[in-house]
């Protein structure tokens, strides 16, 4: 196991890491340009583009993203925890099918979900309403919150619940006083991951976003398709900084790779 990677492997590795980091580093560099066009600052650095963000419509978009993500992550967790308890703690007819159903949003491309949600909201009369958007995000992130809730339950000694039961606690008391406090750290991790997932979601959101529900990724996408200037780079750099901060926190608390095992993509 302690066999080293050869020089060729290390060169490949360096190139791979450079490939991974290049676009992110470039964005961060461009964000500090003093010029009005995309360029990498060499002699002079400036914060003018960061200052330009304030007062732009990216700020309200950011807050919409935060609200939507917080609401969606909380709702997803709220419905996932009972579902996780049902499927992890009980044997009942239809259990397998139910688990498959709960995980099925993973099978449906976000573009399809976006179209479906747009049609649904038009039919039900929810257009330009954050509720529909939030519920769409709940659908997308529920498989992940469910998996993390299941993992938290699986990592817990079942006999601890039985012990509480034998001491006279009712099912509800067992959950409130024993199960919940024990799985809470796992649930918090799930919430955070769901929040990020919802915050970053573009493909579905772009279909249903209205002026009142334009999230940050959607606003950035619309902006970029028109033109690319150093201001979007500055926003991107700020988001990268936030992600690094989050990563540091999550690595401290949970070990990041375990959490990322459950994250989806585009």
């Amino acid at each position: 196991m302690t066999r080293r990677n050869g020089p060729l492997a290390l060169v490949f590795h360096a190139a791979f890491i450079a490939f991974i980091l290049a676009p992110l580093v470039v964005v961060c560099l461009v964000a500090f340009t003093p010029e009005a066009y995309l360029s990498i600052p060499t002699t002079r650095w400036s914060l003018r583009w960061f200052k330009a963000i304030w007062g732009s419509d990216f700020i309200p978009a950011f807050w919409i993203s935060v609200y939507v993500a917080a609401a969606a992550a909380s709702l997803a967790l709220l419905v996932s925890v009972p579902a996780a308890i049902a499927t992890a703690r009980f044997q009942f007819p239809g259990r397998e099918a139910l688990v498959a159903y709960f995980l099925s949003p993973l099978m449906v491309p976000h573009v399809v979900l976006g179209v479906a949600l747009l049609r649904f909201m038009a039919e039900v009369g929810l257009t330009a309403n954050a509720f529909g958007l939030i519920m769409g995000h709940v659908v997308i992130i529920m498989p992940f919150t469910l998996r993390l809730a299941l993992a938290a339950l699986a990592g817990m000694d079942r006999h601890v619940e039985w012990a509480a039961g034998s001491l006279g606690a009712s099912d509800l008391t067992v959950f409130r006083r024993v199960t919940l406090p024990i799985i809470l750290p796992g649930l918090a991790g799930g919430w955070l991951l769901a929040f990020i997932q919802s915050f970053d979601e573009l493909t579905m959101t772009v279909f249903v976003a209205s002026p009142g529900t334009t999230t940050l990724p959607v606003r950035m996408f619309q902006y970029i398709t028109d033109n690319i200037d150093p201001m979007v780079a500055a926003i991107s750099a700020a988001l990268i900084g936030l992600a690094i901060l989050l990563m540091a926190v999550m690595e401290r608390v949970y070990g990041l790779e375990r959490l990322l095992a459950g994250k989806g993509g585009d």
């Binding site: 676009p23 992110l24 990724p217 988001l239 992600a243 690595e251 990041l256 790779e257 993509g265």
Partner: peptide
């Protein structure tokens, strides 16, 4: 692993913007 998986925490729009610049 952190370096490779970390970008998953950043919006696809941001990551793609990097490529547009490059």
């Amino acid at each position: 692993l952190l370096v490779i998986l970390g970008p998953l925490l950043v919006s696809v729009v941001v990551r793609t913007l990097g490529w547009a610049v490059l």
